[in-house]
């Protein structure tokens, strides 16, 4: 039996990953990198759920992680389709190019 990792450490790691992903979403301008940063944020939440599930010795956290995984996949599928449309319409992957509506 291995010594278990304290819940706080897991949550801290997840929080750090979440913050890194959020910074990526805010700073990056290339749409593909923004999507990757979003994946990091979503996976950080998955890690937090697994950690929480481990604290209570329940499977719920892992079940939730599976849901997050499948939802992230669906989101990326639609996201990449939009990236293709963006490339076709604006001939660039720069997210700032797609910013013509103001007011």
């Amino acid at each position: 039996m291995m010594a278990s990792v304290p819940t706080e450490y897991g949550l801290l790691l997840a929080g750090t990953l979440f913050a890194l992903g959020l910074i990526g979403v805010l700073v990056r301008r290339n749409i593909v990198f923004i999507l990757m940063s979003l994946e990091i944020m979503l996976n950080a939440t998955g890690l937090a759920f697994v950690t929480a599930g481990a604290r209570w010795a329940q499977a719920d956290g892992q079940v939730m992680y599976l849901f997050i995984l499948s939802m992230a996949a669906a989101e990326v599928a639609v996201g990449l389709a939009l990236v293709l449309k963006l490339q076709r319409q604006f001939k660039t992957l720069d997210a700032d190019a797609a910013s013509r509506m103001h007011g």
Binding site: L11, L42, A48, F49, G61, M71
Partner: peptide
């Protein structure tokens, strides 16, 4: 982009409450 980021916020909040 914004909906996915906000979903991540929502999920992290849920994870903390569950923890």
């Amino acid at each position: 982009i914004l909906a996915a980021a906000s979903a991540a916020f929502l999920l992290f909040g849920m994870a903390l409450i569950y923890a």
